[in-house]
């Protein structure tokens, strides 16, 4: 099998359903958030306490999966180097819609304490859409759970539409990504 067969050449499409069904499915989506186990920075150390006995995120239906294909939520946990950004974009595009992104820590908002670093991306939302920010350096598991509650509320109200924005403004996001990533070797569309 050729390598190309694993990717699609088409642009992603948006499918729409009737509102009543969407409301029901949004309710189900909010109750069952599968987080991909991928840590970009120091914040990923706060995820294990969140999903284990002490803070027990599973009672809200939040559980972890090991593959982007099945995941709903990508957590950008802390600072993001350019090297990591390539992987993050790739993971995000491999996730299946609807998908949500949680930005964890001050670094994802405006660079945080690495605002003047030569290697830390300051504004993550230029490159991928972010639905919920959790501020702090680092946010404690309680704060992350509060962030998840916020995300659930947004999903139930139908306002968590970052993935739709990504599809609509794909060219804009691509331009931003290509501006800082030299040597772009990944296929144009890889979902």
């Amino acid at each position: 099998m050729k390598e190309k067969d694993y990717f699609l050449d088409d642009r992603p499409k948006k499918l729409s359903y009737s509102e009543v069904w969407e409301k029901f499915f949004n309710w189900a989506r909010a109750q069952s958030l599968w987080v991909i186990a991928y840590g970009t920075g120091c914040g990923s150390i706060e995820i294990p306490p969140m999903v284990t006995s002490r803070f027990d995120a599973e009672r809200f239906g939040v559980s972890t999966v090991g593959t982007p294909r099945q995941a709903d939520v990508l957590i950008i946990s802390g600072y993001l180097a350019v090297k990591t950004l390539k992987r993050v974009i790739r993971v995000y595009e491999q996730m299946q819609s609807p998908k949500y992104v949680v930005g964890l820590g001050a670094c994802t908002v405006n660079g945080g304490m690495y605002y003047d670093s030569y290697n830390t991306v300051n504004l993550v939302d230029l490159y991928i859409p972010i639905d919920v920010y959790v501020a702090g350096c680092m946010p404690r598991p309680e704060a992350i759970l509060a962030g998840f509650a916020q995300l659930m509320k947004k999903i139930k109200e139908g306002r968590a539409d970052g993935w739709k924005q990504y599809i609509d403004n794909l060219d804009k996001y691509r331009k931003n990504q290509e501006k800082i990533i030299k040597n772009w070797k990944i296929p144009n569309y890889n979902w």
Partner: peptide
């Protein structure tokens, strides 16, 4: 832990049915 509700698997199934695939 408290754990998820016993109907969690139903909710997961409903969610998976309406996830898009490409």
């Amino acid at each position: 832990r408290r754990g998820p509700t016993v109907f969690q698997n139903f909710i997961d199934l409903i969610k998976l049915l309406r996830k898009k695939t490409a």
